[in-house]
């Protein structure tokens, strides 16, 4: 099989290039793209990429496979390869550190901007704060985010304004706390999101929904935030 891999070592290469590597796939065994990368790395140990849990929960190995963002460890080669060819690139839109490794600082800066932690100004009770199963169900589809960055780096609005548009991942987190019955800072949170960029740069093209490896729906969360903003502001 022909695999074309984005290679760039800042100390050596003036510009990144796609380098072809060929590899024999075992018969009758399904490989994930990460398995493929591990084999390629045995051929050429200088190939760099992030990986850890290899089961789709740590969010390390978000890459672009034949044009589509996803996690290498839970994406079968057969699902993304086209006519025996596979091109592997780093997540688009972020600075590349080396090969498939991108600099995610902008992504995490946006994450931190939404104050991604519970704020409750009441003194905590001796036990847990109570929350009904229905209230807790509001957090489903939000708290599962693994911060892999597949969504935000598939979003043109994030490409254009990575410093100002919070991006789908950050906004999913923002709504996760807005939706939490235990959080008391909704008004402040919304005020921080009111500017023309943070939320309103979302154009609803749903690339984020299309690529999310956990099947989450940031666009819906963004819609809910907009709804809250309208309700608060009018």
């Amino acid at each position: 099989m022909q695999v074309s891999v984005y290679r760039y070592d800042p100390d050596v290469d003036e510009a990144p290039q796609m380098r072809d590597m060929s590899i024999d796939l075992p018969e009758g065994k399904e490989l994930m793209v990460l398995d493929l990368l591990e084999r390629l790395k045995e051929q050429d140990p200088s190939l760099s990429y992030r990986r850890s849990c290899r089961e789709g929960v740590c969010g390390s190995d978000g890459i672009n496979m034949n044009g589509l963002n996803g996690l290498a460890c839970i994406t079968p080669v057969s699902q993304v390869a086209k006519r025996g060819k596979l091109a592997l690139r780093p997540l688009p839109g972020l600075p590349v550190i080396r090969d498939l490794v991108v600099d995610m600082s902008q992504f995490f800066d946006q994450f931190e901007k939404v104050r991604p932690y519970l704020i409750n100004d009441q003194p905590p009770p001796a036990q847990e704060r109570l929350q009904s199963p229905e209230e807790r169900a509001e957090l489903d589809g939000l708290y599962e985010c693994i911060l892999c960055g597949c969504c935000s780096t598939a979003c043109p609005s994030f490409w254009w304004n990575p410093d100002k548009f919070v991006g789908p991942a950050g906004l999913l987190q923002a709504y996760r706390f807005l939706a939490d019955s235990r959080d008391t800072a909704s008004a402040e949170r919304l005020r921080d999101l009111e500017d023309p960029f943070s939320v309103f740069r979302c154009r609803g093209i749903m690339n984020c929904v299309n690529v999310c490896p956990k099947g989450l729906n940031p666009t819906r969360a963004i819609g809910k935030i907009r709804g809250l903003l309208v309700r608060q502001g009018t």
């Binding site: 929350q131 199963p133 235990r182």
Partner: peptide, 11 residues
């Protein structure tokens, strides 16, 4: 829980 961990809940 006070930090915000989204535990599943009983009735």
């Amino acid at each position: 829980e006070h930090m915000g961990l989204p535990f599943s809940r009983t009735e």
